[in-house]
Design a protein around this nucleic acid. Sequence first.
DNA 1: TATGAATGAGGATTCATTCAT
DNA 2: GATGAATGAATCCTCATTCAT
Lengths: 211, 211, 211, 211
Amino acid sequence: MPTPAKTEPRWTRRKHARPEEITAAALESFVERGYAGTRLEDVAARAGISKGTLYLYFENKEELFKAVVREGLVSPIAEIRGIVDQFDGSTFDLLRMMLFGWWERVGATRVSGIPKLIFAEAGNFPELARFYVAEVVDPGHDVIAAIVKRGIARGEFRDIDPHYAAQMIAAPMVFITMWCRSLAHHATRTIDPVQYLETHLDMLRHALART
Amino acid sequence: MPTPAKTEPRWTRRKHARPEEITAAALESFVERGYAGTRLEDVAARAGISKGTLYLYFENKEELFKAVVREGLVSPIAEIRGIVDQFDGSTFDLLRMMLFGWWERVGATRVSGIPKLIFAEAGNFPELARFYVAEVVDPGHDVIAAIVKRGIARGEFRDIDPHYAAQMIAAPMVFITMWCRSLAHHATRTIDPVQYLETHLDMLRHALART
Amino acid sequence: MPTPAKTEPRWTRRKHARPEEITAAALESFVERGYAGTRLEDVAARAGISKGTLYLYFENKEELFKAVVREGLVSPIAEIRGIVDQFDGSTFDLLRMMLFGWWERVGATRVSGIPKLIFAEAGNFPELARFYVAEVVDPGHDVIAAIVKRGIARGEFRDIDPHYAAQMIAAPMVFITMWCRSLAHHATRTIDPVQYLETHLDMLRHALART
Amino acid sequence: MPTPAKTEPRWTRRKHARPEEITAAALESFVERGYAGTRLEDVAARAGISKGTLYLYFENKEELFKAVVREGLVSPIAEIRGIVDQFDGSTFDLLRMMLFGWWERVGATRVSGIPKLIFAEAGNFPELARFYVAEVVDPGHDVIAAIVKRGIARGEFRDIDPHYAAQMIAAPMVFITMWCRSLAHHATRTIDPVQYLETHLDMLRHALART
DNA sequence: TATGAATGAGGATTCATTCAT
DNA sequence: GATGAATGAATCCTCATTCAT
């Protein structure tokens, strides 16, 4: 195979690409276009680097996606976990703190566009699904279940299965992000996230409180 | 009797492919593999027709997708609406009836794979998103809000904003279908849908009941 | 992912691509450019079909290559095997017949450009190497070893290890094709293949004859 | 004594990369993976230098390849030529000495992986092919032809065309190196090089001996 | 109406080559 | 001299779409 035609460089070289700039660009693209619909070339362009440079930092599309998830979801959850474990006060206050802490860190940011993507692509990228379950779903569920257990242990909550209770607490959280990140733009009736979360808290107070 | 010359046609011609058979096949594929991941060739194979025939019935992948969504979602909700309007009994019983009626008609069937598709593709198909909001989200929301209002009117539920309450009732319903249709296959912890719905009802009872 | 821009077809459609036309085109390219250096697009162009059509007939580059080898080397060897097994006459005559039969069917044709390719790419495409050993080297060796055994059994050849004798018979056959297909074009001294083979036969006669 | 600020250089700078170390590394890679399959990054890593440094010594991959060939093949042949010219003894002994001398110096070493590369790349590098013919093939052939002529002149060999006889002597030598350097790793039947060469010599003895 | 062979744009990934430091 | 991050052309393969039969 003969040497390919010499190419004259017309580009200017960047100093140093930083991985976070790349994952930030990738996040936008993934959330806008979906996993399959995201073209690595676009991500590169958004990050101001070339296609090839992407591969210096991430082995492939899948690893890039995982990095986005790790940065955007795994660490905030760990952070929240820390706060929850150290909290000293009523469990209802803890619940509120967790809910709004999560909203600030995740729900209100672009990262919250990830779950819809995972749900949609799980069938095609099982490895991604497993990763997401292990790194996001399970830890997230555990934080919430821990709160429920704490409430029961302290006699603030009624006796209820923490596993299923955690699901009921999490579902509206997931739902509101998916709504805001996709259907909200096309909706006739608007939902105010804060009021939504307040209602959720209010109903949880009644649903969980010891009679 | 001389053996007649055999010129076997390589394919057997179907009489009439029916669009519903095609959308049924497409639904399965879309739900399993997502929009981008669905190969028209697979849909055709599942429907027992050829790739070319698909294009006699649907202009392109996009139109097929729209047809799938349109066909799968509208009527069950209308049916439930009828039942709700005619119901005569306690509103909590009505809530239970609605929830499990929906589960049987929608939640437990393949159609329930559609929401995740909509969420994921809303950005790419705004028109479809609007359609879905108008034909599914809003009517669905209305049924539930109607139940809440009924409960309040009859003094069974405490005074609560029916709009937001409806959201809180719907979120876990949507969530459980999305879970079952995608992440459940990769999960470490299992969720039993019936127990999930029972917990939901139980918590709603506490959350909505007049003190 | 939005539907890609509709493309206006500007091409004319062929009736039916025949696999042999494709393998013929591929053979030329492989022999000229090597395995890695062969671009499937070129093969397609040579065969007068499009890139995509190639994939209707061959799963991938590797399978295409295997098909070329099967058609160009495996069947001729099988054919020669048949002739050898049925031969009735002196084993020296059989040797001559095999040698020139092979020359006509393989050595003098483009197919003989394959071995050099295999030797060069074996490290990079182990699967190809294994295939070639199993389908070409071993059967080819067996035919020759069978001739040697026949000669010994009939008392025409002296007692000699058939395995290594077969190697000595085959080496110049392989060598002459590699020479003709690559270095011959750049050589100062010419080799006449027929005279080369005659010398080979002559030396074999002395080397193998029972004293 | 205050601790001095440590700014450790991330790399250690080599004093002087020597071209031979690079060609040695390149030879290994070319022989293992072929021309196209050789990645300059691997060559650099093997040579303990960086990709960029490679380009200080060789203009491009092609020139590196040429350098490898030039360095690896010319001198051993000259050396053997000297030994042959000075030999005093039976020509059959000389043949044996040449054969095993070559095996030790070339055949058994990595350099013997070059011919297969040349054969494969001759089409792409005509200039290299010409170089190889002039510097390796022709001189090599001459040494062997000289031996044949000596044998005939001394009445030890029968009257035979030295040119073609030399080819017959050389072919198995080339063949065994190509085998050992590529297909041997994937073969089912093993060849022992020494026994192979012994058989070659044994057959040559019969084939060349004066009756 | 039904078919399925043919098409070619599109995208992930590789790697020879450049050049600011 | 030495480095290695950055580049982008090149290539394999996929799949939505077309159309002669």
